[in-house]
Design a protein around this nucleic acid. Sequence first.
DNA 1: CTTGACATCGAACGAATGTTCTGGTATTAT
DNA 2: ATAATACCAGAACATTCGTTCGATGTCAAG
Lengths: 210, 210
Amino acid sequence: MTPRRRSTTLTDPQIKVLKVIEEYQNTNGFPPSIRDIQDMGKFSSTSVVNYYLEQLETMGHIKRSGHVSRGIRLVRPFSDLAQSASRTIQNVRESVQQVLSIPVMGRIFASEPVHVPQSDFPYLDAESVVNVARSMLPAREKVEELFALEVNGDSMIDAMVNDGDIVIMKPAKDVHNGDLVAIWLRDKDETTLKYFFLEDGKVRLQPANP
Amino acid sequence: MTPRRRSTTLTDPQIKVLKVIEEYQNTNGFPPSIRDIQDMGKFSSTSVVNYYLEQLETMGHIKRSGHVSRGIRLVRPFSDLAQSASRTIQNVRESVQQVLSIPVMGRIFASEPVHVPQSDFPYLDAESVVNVARSMLPAREKVEELFALEVNGDSMIDAMVNDGDIVIMKPAKDVHNGDLVAIWLRDKDETTLKYFFLEDGKVRLQPANP
DNA sequence: CTTGACATCGAACGAATGTTCTGGTATTAT
DNA sequence: ATAATACCAGAACATTCGTTCGATGTCAAG
């Protein structure tokens, strides 16, 4: 019944193992043990499960940490469980993404600029970090340099920036005309949001709020 | 040095445990064992780690599955990393997380309920999906059933729900007293946010806004 | 038929790991 | 001071769990 292929396609028991792993992970929050997979997947022996786990690992579908209990990680999120009657009413999609935890360095008052703490402040608490999916950023940024600022103040609606929004920025090396930039007033240790214009060799900073 | 409080605030070793769990989970993809926490956190004994894990569980910061290896789940996403002279010039951290794309099914006006589209709408466009890191959800949810609603209206501040917030919900099978639930008025095809109370066998729905 | 690769089964071993117990020390309350 | 509580240390125990190994079954090619 089941064709013996060693190609990229998955065999029936391999798929079952993957589905069981995913389901277990989703319901319990941690990966299953081999015996958990055996039970949920109605496998006859732990060695069989291990047998397929080895295959799945060499195929690159999972990663395993040797001699570590529940050391199984799904490489792909969901993917292959299509086949047959795919019938998937699109609901919640689960995927793995690069997530960046960007420190929120301070706040910007769109109207009146506000103090920004020194760059080497001792700690970051929960409120000072924002998680952003990598796919939401403009492609490939120098990730290490990114930081975030929270916007206070009701103005700046014209720039699609509202009160409470968190702006993710990078230290600009090259700035173009019309860019919305956060200007760091070095002497004042303050930051404010301005539109940037370079005119006749002189820099003009247009306030973002009308 | 460290004040002994049993209140809501976390003590230093508790915070360290949380941070270790989170870091281990982020780097390895599965939760740490007690001895892993002991090593990474420089704890002197497994019993000490277990001691704090029990505290954290009763505080509701983690969930544990008894007699299951690595049966630890972070309840909150990110804990309260802070304090102690960790002095880590913490920059942008990059990690891989499970990301859920949850469809936004409609909007809730906290004051006046609003129409919710039929459950079987054909497609999901970009605006009707919200991406949420798996770690921000209460661990074991039936992921497939989740959906989201956007909150309009300035009330409900008491429930920590503000205008523009997006609430992620699941179809409730069992609802407990005091839960904040979205009531679906089937005849009106409308949804509204209420607090749920079961008193004397009768259901009381307390409006969320004062 | 034999051979060999693949798949399956069951059991057992040993390491990984959660749990518990006894005792000790510090801090706080009475 | 004394008791009570929180905190810590170390060890031992019992279970969970990954791993391995031999035996058996299946099937296609030689």
